[in-house]
Write a protein that binds this DNA or RNA. Structure first.
Lengths: 103, 103
DNA sequence: AATTCATATTGACAAAATTTGATTTGATGT
DNA sequence: ACATCAAATCAAATTTTGTCAATATGAATT
């Protein structure tokens, strides 16, 4: 349970960078080739590659190889997983604790 | 629209650090005083203050002053807002785009 | 008004994330 | 086999985060 926080943090890292949000926004329109993403973003080739790796490893984006091109799209399951994680994180526990602490 | 990504990224920054996830986990049990959080976390006083500021500014946590003590709890609306943001980010657009790009 | 206590702020430093350019890898076409 | 192109990896520079210790602030108590 202790290290699950570390793993969960990794999922949300996908969303805490401006450029990655922009990329996700583009992918919401459907699967896109890296070359198309490059055109629309203020990023160099290696920079895009760096961010795509983070997105793919977080599970939020899927990649598909086609010859020398790589196509990316939002992963339905990955997205749903992130949403459910976030819901848990922000939903109060069933077990309430009374905190009579400082006085 | 360009800077909204920046703002959204700020919301998700709340969730991309291990310690902050731990804090949220504690707050899921109900409102807690800073002193209680301090006991349960491997953090110094200024460190806790640093993280609480990020959490509060993201809107996910609310703080309440009571004399010299500060109590923190998860914000229902803030949490719901983050979830709805994330849902949008990971849900394909209504408008599909065909991408006949590279060949 | 002086002291005490909880929390916030600051500045210095360390560690992690991001950017950039160069190089490498792997697939295609000639 | 060689040249070409897309994408990944690497290494160095830069920026951003997080930590820690010291100090400041502000409320409560004396």
């Amino acid at each position: 349970m202790a290290t699950s926080h570390e793993e969960h943090a990794k999922v949300f890292k996908a969303f805490c960078d401006e450029k990655r949000l922009k990329i996700l926004d583009l992918l919401r329109g459907g699967e896109k080739c890296a070359c198309v993403l490059l055109e629309q973003l203020d990023l160099g080739q290696s920079g895009l590659s760096y961010h795509m790796k983070i997105l793919v490893e977080s599970g939020v984006v899927e990649s598909r190889q086609e010859g020398k091109w790589t196509h990316y799209k939002i992963s339905e399951t990955g997205g749903a997983y992130a949403v459910s994680l976030l819901k848990n994180l922000t939903t109060p526990n069933a077990v309430r604790e009374e905190n009579i602490c400082c006085r």
